[in-house]
Design a binder for these strands. Structure first.
Lengths: 205, 205
DNA sequence: TGCCAGTAGGACCGAACGGTCCTAATTTAT
DNA sequence: ATAAATTAGGACCGTTCGGTCCTACTGGCA
């Protein structure tokens, strides 16, 4: 029933993350999903716009399964989970072979100013993401310094990761992302209470 | 002579930073620059692609004038310059009213995977930018810890700023960028040698 | 049996796209 | 004065775009 729909969604997701939403034509999606023609496509989606919305949601759910799920693992120390989550983002990017970075970041850069419908939905995605990190930070509160601003820190983490993925794509070099991930972990460690040094890397030598 | 050219370049820069390169048509640029017709435009630029390249260069030069120039001020302490530079990025974004963020980041996200010609040019822009920060970091070497990796740190700074601009556009809230700028400064301060506390903010209360 | 969602495929639409070509008026430098 | 560059403006081209419409064949299910 919805099998073919998912097929279309997947094909569209790949194309959009590689070439952007505007540069991905409905005909491309049809070719990618091996449909017979336009009417076949419009049997499942009422417009290209709606397709875009659903792709965005699906990408987020996928990301939530693979990445955000780690943030909720109840058996692992929250700060370790944060570290694992950052690793997961790196792994996710590694899988795509450097190409086609964060589907949210791409759509955000492309459509945030031009298309209010997308902007709002992307904002919601970021917000859901940020709230996951915020609640993790809240959970890790006993280990953190009192003056840690969870809202600001969560935004910083997301911004750093999004920027890192972008730079990695431009330079076609995964080590860029790896380096930034490392620095990001050090920055987070900076907020840990003195004495509660769970990971706390300082001065390597 | 080249006056009209600059007019076109400016109009195109505005449009591209607002709607992206693909979604900006030559006709839009003509309208924006108040040209008489297509032939008038193609009198100055041989293709839309070439226009894009020149816009990219011009945007970088502008950014270099306003932002990167600060990094080279010889009379100011290097780490203070870095801080001022971050302030300049915030100010630049504030001027555009939250809309149309980093012209490099936008083009990068839109075209890095799709268009090799742009990818290479954007990579060069980032590289020039990174090298400015690297040489500043080199200059500040006596104040920094011995194990500071200038390459990695410069990349981190750029990634954080690019990601911050992106998030700010999505949320239409400049305070996002301001918060991240603050955290970024704290991260940089983390690399300062103990005892040489120029700015070093730790534990506010 | 009849119904209906899914599959298949093609014709077609108006609009927008990047780009070319051509003519002619106006300005500028020599 | 004259040649060259710039400005002006329109016609046109082939292609692609998102989207509609129409026909017809398939399968399963009541």
């Amino acid at each position: 029933m919805t099998e073919r729909r998912l097929q279309i969604l997947d094909a569209a997701a790949t194309l959009i993350s590689e070439r952007g939403f505007t540069s991905t034509s409905v005909d491309d999606v049809i070719k990618g999903a091996k449909l017979s023609g336009k009417s076949h496509f419009y049997h499942y989606f009422k417009s290209k716009e709606e397709l875009g919305y659903e792709v965005l949601n699906r990408q987020f759910e996928r990301f939530a399964d693979r990445g955000l799920a780690i943030l909720r693992e109840p058996m692992i120390d929250p700060l370790d989970r944060l570290s694992l989550f950052i690793d997961a983002v790196v792994a996710l990017q590694a899988e795509s072979g450097g190409r086609g970075g964060s589907p949210f970041g791409n759509l955000a850069a492309e459509l945030a100013d031009a298309h209010e419908g997308f902007r709002i939905r992307i904002e919601a995605v970021f917000e859901r993401w940020a709230s996951q990190i915020r609640s993790l930070l809240w959970e890790a509160r006993p280990q953190l310094q009192e003056d840690v601003d969870a809202v600001r820190l969560s935004r910083f983490i997301i911004a750093a990761l999004e920027g890192a993925v972008l730079m990695t794509r431009v330079k076609r070099d995964l080590s860029v992302l790896e380096g930034i991930a490392l620095d990001l972990k050090r920055f987070i460690a900076m907020h840990v209470r003195d004495g509660v040094t769970t990971v706390r890397p300082r001065r390597v030598e």
